[in-house]
């Protein structure tokens, strides 16, 4: 896959990864689980790409592959136009990783001491390091708590420090693995503003964000990728995924009298009869249009009172695409 004009930070083509499960019975061979199955996607520069999926979908595996912490079994990964191989250190300075793991910090040190240490590993030192630390602390609103011991931090403060650590290296891509999962509603909203105002507007960065939260994805994402059982089951903009994807649409028709005899006279409509004179009509927008559906009902003699257009929500999409309750 060509990384057209460097519009993509990452392009993944047919990336697969299978893990061997821990041995539970020494007399039986080790079982395997396919964490990623021919994943093809692009992370667009300067955009927020949200990776949605149920537990065990392979989201964290994908993030770790991008951060060069796991080597895929097959497939091609392009970072800009460079093919990533096992010596993935060439991308590591360009990536800011935020994991949900608060144990990746040193609990006996203060927030500032932690940042000083990790900043050094990002090749920063002296005045430049101090400046970056102040800047990062300020951007996440942690300046006043920087000299407290990490072990005294609340979940929200830990997460802010986690993000401040990722900011230190001024990366062009932020890999955020469920960054708001432990935050209360107010802190989550604050985090969303942070992504939109600091990461996107001020830093002009690219964000790849794993989340369970549909609202988060809807609010932040320029592009959504839905992963289930290691496979990409849908991808597109939030608008596309709210109905256009697969071209599935639903009309709710409110009518009076009887349903016209013989309607629908076409096989591309799925009709569910509801109570009190309502019909749910599912159709494929690639085959027909909502106007054609309505016209066919009226022309068949139907007495239409009201029409509601329903688009599938992300949650419904996840249910349908995953083929099970997620």
């Amino acid at each position: 896959m060509s990384n057209q004009n460097n519009q993509n930070i990452f392009s993944l083509t047919d990336v697969s990864k299978t893990f061997k499960l821990p041995l539970t019975n020494p007399l039986k061979p080790r079982k395997t689980v396919k964490a990623l199955d021919s994943v093809t996607l692009e992370i667009l520069r300067g955009k927020v790409t949200c990776l949605l999926g149920p537990n065990g979908a392979g989201k964290t595996t994908l993030i770790k592959i991008l951060a060069d912490l796991i080597t895929p079994d097959s497939g091609e990964i392009l970072y800009r136009d460079m093919v990533l191989d096992e010596s993935g250190k060439k991308v590591q300075g360009k990536i800011g990783l935020v994991t949900p793991n608060d144990r990746s910090f040193y609990w006996r040190l203060t927030g500032r001491q932690n940042l000083e240490f990790f900043g050094a590993l990002y090749n920063l030192r002296g005045a430049a390091l101090r400046r970056r630390i102040e800047e990062s602390l300020d951007e996440v609103g942690m300046t006043n708590n920087a000299d407290k011991s990490y072990q005294l931090y609340s979940a929200g403060m830990k997460q802010k420090l986690n993000i401040a650590r990722a900011l230190l290296g001024h990366p062009e891509l932020y890999l955020l693995d469920e960054p708001a999962s432990h935050l209360d509603p107010l802190a989550r909203e604050e985090f969303w503003h942070f992504v939109l105002n600091i990461l996107m507007k001020k830093r002009n960065a690219t964000v790849f964000l794993c989340t369970h939260d549909l609202e988060e994805a809807r609010l932040l994402a320029d592009q959504i990728v839905i992963l289930d059982a290691g496979r990409v089951v849908a991808q597109g903009t939030p608008k596309q995924l709210n109905g256009v994807i697969d071209n599935r649409k639903e009309l709710e028709l409110h009518y009076s009298g009887e349903i016209p005899r013989g309607w629908p006279d076409r096989g591309d409509l799925t009709v569910d009869r509801g109570e009190n004179g309502t019909l749910r009509v599912l159709f494929d927008e690639a085959v027909t249009t909502q106007e054609a559906v309505i016209r066919s009902f009226v022309e068949a003699g139907g007495n239409l009172r009201e029409v509601f257009v329903r688009t599938e929500s992300l949650l419904e999409l996840l249910h349908r695409k995953a083929g099970r309750n997620v």
């Binding site: 250190k89 144990r103 590993l121 990002y122 090749n123």
Partner: peptide, 18 residues
Amino acid sequence: IQGTLEFLLSTPSSTNLV
């Protein structure tokens, strides 16, 4: 066990240095 190894290895510093 502490959970720091993975993050340390995700930095641009060399594996041997870590």
